[in-house]
Amino acid sequence: MESLLELKDVSIDFQSKRKSFNIIKNINLKIDRKMKYGIVGESGSGKSLTSLAVMNLLSDNLSIGQGEIILRTEEEKVLNHLSKKAMRDVRGEDIAMIFQEPMTALDPLYTIEYQIIEVLKYHRKMSKKEMREKAIAMLTSVGISRPEKIMDDYPHQLSGGMRQRVMIAMALITEPKLLIADEPTTALDVTIQAQILDLMNDLTEEHGTSILMITHDLGVILETCDRVAVMYAGQVVEESTVKNVFDNPQHPYTQGLLKSIKTLGDRSEKLYSIPGNVPTPDEYQELGCRFATRCPFAFDKCFSEEPPAFQVGADQTSKCWLHDEEANPNE
């Protein structure tokens, strides 16, 4: 079966009058129907940009330099080549998005009812009454206990968790094929986080929606996703099923990330951290691996030539020269 969303060799460039550089380089992703796909990476790794690129919401100084973003619903659409109007029909209808900050993601001047119904107005032909009924049903299904009352409330009257529930209701009310969740639980309490993740899981399972989960939290990935792509400095460095990545990480960066999680009962004094910082886009090396400067295993070739994505095992890729038997000096 063909995948629902496919990113083929997508690169994103930044241009300003003075300089221009590449930010995201040759991303390849495939998200199947009903799949829960995670992108994990540090701040500045380009994970949010990737999701905005899918929605065609990049700011003016950013553009998709090359590659194709393909969405296959009833028909096949190349999202980055769609007209503005056609793209607006895709947004909210085929792909919905949940943002990180529930505090600012709702317009403070309108009631919850208005904001949920706004989505329906653009995508469904329904009477006012039907829309209201549908909105109430949706609020009920996201676990809001008195939906009729909430409908007339303004965003500031709701708690963070409630607002995120409303956001989920807004996103799923059109039954989109894909839900992009950009750090949906980062701004919430830990106890609420689990509830929201469970809720998203249940609802998407019910409607057969795929999820693209963007997060820096490996715990969230482990809890919700089937597959995961690890991003570093605008590239996918490792990609596989969540189980493979967690049990058998191949890329030194993934290994470093997993090592820096502190588990309960671990009494060692120091928390492991990967030395150095994520480079900013203007510091990206033209040649070689972008992680080489921080990699404990780096050797000459890492600085001179960019590694391809090596197939490791049956269903895992890792972008590292260590997997090349000829190049690796340690073998």
């Binding site: 947004r91 600012t104 709702l106 807004m170």
Partner: peptide
């Protein structure tokens, strides 16, 4: 800069 504007765009509002 508020996310509700991006959100409105993401929902397909012109």
């Amino acid at each position: 800069e508020n996310e509700y504007i991006t959100n409105a765009e993401a929902v397909g509002v012109s």
